[in-house]
């Protein structure tokens, strides 16, 4: 899915996959930080955003 999204022009860094157990709070925090950092590093997304214009 990530590959197809990238193929269509959505930056790969916007989609993350992770496997986190409910006991892995620290991993969850780290992944959340990683995701937000990766997405923040990109320009704001305006693709797949409906505008109703």
């Amino acid at each position: 899915m990530g590959n197809l999204l990238e193929h269509m022009g959505i930056e790969k860094q916007r989609l993350h996959f992770s496997w986190i157990s409910s006991a892995e709070a620290t991993k969850f925090v780290n992944v959340a930080k990683e995701v937000t950092n990766a997405v923040r590093a990109l320009e704001p997304n305006n693709k797949f955003v409906k505008t109703l214009d």
């Binding site: 990238e6 193929h7 269509m8 022009g9 930056e11």
Partner: peptide, 17 residues
């Protein structure tokens, strides 16, 4: 054919579709 699209920049891919 797929490789041709893969070689485009991310913006060009979006515009292509």
């Amino acid at each position: 054919d797929v490789k041709k699209i893969e070689s485009l920049s991310i913006e060009d891919k979006w515009n292509y579709f």
